[in-house]
Design a protein around this nucleic acid. Structure first.
Length: 572
RNA sequence: CGGGGCGUGGCUCAGUCUGGUAGAGCGCUGCGUUCGGGACGCAGAGGUCGCAGGUUCAAAUCCUGUCGCCCCGACCA
């Protein structure tokens, strides 16, 4: 029998006080429970207790990946820059890509933020026939991204553990099949991890349709927003969220077009305050550079432009706000006074909500002036309109149900890539007819550390963590009181050994400390099942059994408790 | 990258404005009393005050630079 896993032989540096830098609950509790320690901004050491949970999550992910038919491999974190140049993602990722400097080797090496290039490189060298497809490869590996702002403990870091899977398919139908299988595997993974998750539609990229889903955990600590219909019919991320068209307000008479002096007032807020109008009465005019062409986008003053959507609408590769010089050339005015009236010779895309505006306020294309009483059709024409804004509170889903916004953290993403990488890297295969085709790819990511943090965000109380049973560092904690009493320790150790013999992870708190102290720590580290062995109880012929998520205490004979615990775990 | 804040013992912080030889609580070590929800007493250990310059008889404190960390925002294959 292996020696009991005793607290005194382990490293669990719990903290009574909260470190000042920790703000969100998961960060605070992971620090206080001794799960991890910060080493640098966005880089954390996982201490033994935290590492056990990480490993348990990994094991669940691995099992489900294998069950879904994916094959595990391991690729280097350190990668040749050359591969990134092949797909031009060295440019696309910009500053986020961690590059090394100095000496030839380092100049030509990056730390991988993800592994599309590397797997594709491996696959193109070893797969040439449809007979070898489909195949899905995955790894669980450390990624590096120079995030501009690491935050919220382990929720956003520069170094993190990710399960990344890549499918290689001979056809769209084959990709669809794998995608569905992965989707199902993801659901099983989050369920087994005890995470309350929501699947949302995400911006789908080149293939379109239902080609991308994100797995979200709703929590205030999150940094993304999901949007869902109140009736539950629909959920999407903000970029993707669909909404019903804004209806035309019923008919005030046309106002007269007037030019007003607005010296130095170049923002929606400034102008609306000065002119005593609502931001929603204003037209925001944004000038973009889309692959070198100037495009003007119009959205209502209180709306935010959805750049990914505009980009998609335009079919542009690169989209960015135009340089001030361009704006001045197009509008003939300083930045901040652009408007659609009198603009000519440029493509103008109006958001749908703009098309129903009436007597609007907008820039006059003249420095320090705005126009009021702008009427569409009289003062300017809308030739092209689309949904190019983000949904906002008050919008309705296409079916009319009100949209609800919730803060969330992304814990997984499945995505149909298509041939983006196989085209760029010439990963081709010969089909049944001997014809060469690019391999169709999908990619599937899971943030392992994020699952851990999200689980804590979703399950804790004032006293500490309440671990879901499958990812708890230990399943059972035995709190031995009166550790100097031989009978107490002998009983505690016996229960420990019997539980371990049944494959139940058990931690034995054998510290010579006062009971209250040990109970507080037990609540903090949040082991789901607790057995208390004390002199007093043994005198009555019992030990106590308590679940972390309940206040009830059960008194059980020492030789019955193992069976009892095993029964509870089996019923999970 | 813009804005704000903070670096003083392992942790939480006071001291900085108004320069004068570094403090508290928690934790840690030893002894004793305690012992079912973060005990108490006594005795201890532990800090070049982020770093580098400067001003001064004298710098945690004032000045300059620099590094790091947190928060808000921008960004996020």
């Amino acid at each position: 029998m292996k020696p009991a896993m005793k607290w005194t032989r382990f490293l669990i540096p719990t903290l009574k006080e909260t470190p000042a830098d920790a703000v969100v609950p998961s960060h605070r509790l992971m620090l206080r429970a001794g799960l991890m320690r910060q080493i640098a901004a966005g880089a954390y050491a996982y201490l033994p207790l935290g590492y056990r949970t990480l490993r348990k999550i990994e094991a669940i992910v691995r099992e489900e990946m294998n069950r879904a038919g994916a094959v595990e491999l391991n690729m280097p974190a350190m990668q040749p820059l050359e591969l990134w140049q092949e797909t031009r993602r060295d440019e696309a990722m910009g500053e986020t890509l961690v590059r090394l400097a100095d000496k030839a080797f380092r100049r030509n090496t990056v730390l991988g933020p993800t592994h599309e290039e590397v797997v594709t490189d491996i696959v193109r060298a070893s797969i040439n026939s449809y007979k070898q497809l489909p195949i899905t490869l995955y790894q669980i590996q450390t990624k590096f991204r120079d995030e501009a702002r690491p935050k919220s403990g382990v929720l956003r870091t520069r170094e993190f553990l990710m399960k990344d899977a890549y499918s290689f398919n001979p056809s769209k139908a084959s990709l669809d099949e794998v995608y569905d299988e992965m989707y199902a595997a993801y659901c099983r993974i989050y369920e087994r991890c005890g995470l309350p998750y929501v699947v949302v539609e995400a911006e789908s990229g080149p293939i379109g349709g239902d080609a991308s889903h994100e797995f979200m955990v709703v929590t205030d600590a999150g940094e993304d927003w999901l949007v869902r219909a109140e009736d539950g019919s629909y959920a999407a991320n903000v970029e993707r969220a669909e909404y019903a068209p804004v209806e035309k307000a019923s008919g005030a008479a046309d106002a007269a077009l007037a030019e007003v002096h607005t010296p130095g007032l170049s923002t929606i807020d400034n102008v609306s305050e000065f002119l005593k109008c609502k931001p929603s009465d204003m037209i925001k005019t944004l000038i973009y550079d889309a692959d070198g062409d100037v495009v003007v986008a119009l959205v209502r003053g209180d709306h935010e432009i959805n750049e990914p959507r505009l980009k998609r609408h335009l079919g542009a590769n690169a989209l960015a706000l135009a340089a001030p010089a361009t704006i001045e050339r197009i509008t003939g005015a300083a930045v901040g006074f652009a408007g659609p009236v009198g603009l000519s010779g440029v493509r103008v895309v109006a958001d749908q909500a703009v098309t129903v505006m009436h007597n609007a306020v907008t820039g006059a294309n003249k420095t320090d002036y705005h126009l009021t009483g702008v009427v569409i059709g009289r003062d300017f024409e809308i030739a092209e309109s689309a949904d190019i804004r983000f949904a906002v509170a008050g919008d309705r889903a296409p079916n009319g149900s009100p949209l609800v916004f919730e803060k969330c953290i992304e814990v997984g993403h499945v995505f149909k890539l298509g041939t983006k990488y196989s085209d760029a890297m010439k990963a081709h295969f010969l089909d049944e007819n001997g014809k060469s085709n690019p391999i169709i790819m999908g990619c599937y990511g899971i943030g392992v550390n994020r699952i851990m943090a999200a689980a804590i965000e979703a399950s804790h109380d004032e006293s500490g963590i309440i671990w879901p049973i499958n990812i708890a560092p230990y399943t059972v904690e035995i709190v031995a009181l009166d550790v100097r009493e031989q009978e107490v320790m002998a009983t505690a150790e016996r229960i420990h050994d019997e539980l371990e013999a049944r494959g139940i992870d058990t931690l034995l708190d054998d510290r010579d400390a006062r009971p209250g102290f040990k109970f507080k720590d037990a609540d903090l580290i949040g082991i789901p099942l607790r057995i208390t062995v004390g002199k007093r109880g043994l005198g009555e012929g019992i030990v106590e059994f308590k679940r972390r998520d309940s206040e009830d205490v059960e008194k059980i004979a020492p030789d019955k408790v193992v069976e009892h615990v095993a029964g509870i775990i089996a019923s999970k």
